[in-house]
Simulated scan of single mutants.
Amino acid sequence: MLLSLLLAAPVRAQTSPATVPIVGLCLAPELTLIPEVHTWPKYEPGENAAEVQRRFEQDWAARWREPVSKAVTVDLLRRLILQRDQAGLADYRPDLDLAGLEWRAITMQTVRQSPYLVFEATAADLPRVNAILRWLKIYCLYDVQRGAIIRVTLTIVGERDE
């Protein structure tokens, strides 16, 4: 029941409509749990994995790549990064090549006999702050049966540089 509710209503970050003008584009601030990324079972590729990947990438290119690239600004990145670490973005200007992303399916869940996949890509390396390496990640929730992306989530992922 909870899973079907998650799929039915996109999670919305607390941002103004002017900041995220694309329906289905969600912002997840750094360190936010994204249920379909962090709790779903790991994806095990089946015999039609290449075809599913091709259809996903076609939908990304046709409907999502351009609007998402226009939406990613320094102000948007500041909303995603922890307040204490925003100083590192002072001179940063995102240089995104969303056409050349390397997508990989990471999790999968079946709801009412319809499979959903989550695809992941690293869109940009962000400035290092306080020994933390950060990346802008894009997660796409993909309805395999319909052949359509139903939600795109932007977030920051980081790890300590040892």
Rank of each mutant, 00 (worst) to 15 (best):
A13R: 07
A13M: 08
A13K: 04
Q14F: 05
T15R: 03
T15H: 06
T15Q: 05
S16L: 08
S16K: 11
S16Q: 06
A18D: 13
A18H: 14
A18S: 13
A18P: 06
A18Y: 08
A18E: 11
T19D: 06
T19A: 11
T19L: 08
T19G: 00
T19R: 11
V20Y: 04
V20P: 03
V20L: 10
V20K: 03
P21I: 11
I22V: 13
I22M: 12
V23K: 15
G24S: 04
G24M: 03
G24R: 00
G24T: 04
L25N: 02
L25D: 02
L25I: 02
L25K: 03
C26G: 12
C26A: 15
C26Y: 03
L27S: 05
L27Q: 01
L27W: 09
A28F: 01
A28D: 07
A28I: 01
A28P: 05
A28G: 05
P29R: 04
E30L: 03
L31T: 01
L31D: 01
T32L: 02
L33G: 04
L33M: 10
L33Y: 07
L33A: 10
L33R: 13
I34D: 00
I34P: 00
I34S: 03
P35C: 07
P35F: 06
P35H: 12
P35R: 06
E36I: 06
E36A: 10
V37I: 11
H38Y: 08
H38I: 11
H38R: 09
T39R: 15
T39G: 10
W40A: 13
W40C: 05
W40M: 14
P41W: 15
K42S: 15
K42Y: 07
K42N: 08
K42D: 13
K42R: 15
E44I: 08
E44M: 06
E44T: 12
E44K: 12
P45M: 00
P45G: 03
P45Y: 00
G46Q: 11
G46R: 14
G46N: 13
G46H: 14
E47R: 06
N48R: 06
N48D: 15
N48W: 02
N48I: 09
A49N: 10
A49F: 09
A49H: 10
A50C: 07
A50H: 04
A50Q: 06
A50E: 15
E51G: 05
E51V: 00
E51I: 03
V52W: 01
V52S: 04
V52K: 05
V52C: 02
Q53I: 09
Q53T: 12
R54I: 02
R54W: 10
R54S: 13
R55S: 10
R55T: 13
R55H: 12
R55W: 04
F56S: 00
F56E: 00
E57V: 02
E57R: 14
E57N: 14
Q58N: 13
Q58R: 14
D59N: 15
D59M: 09
W60N: 06
W60G: 13
W60C: 05
A61C: 07
A61G: 08
A61D: 12
A61I: 08
A62V: 08
A62Q: 15
A62M: 11
A62L: 11
A62C: 08
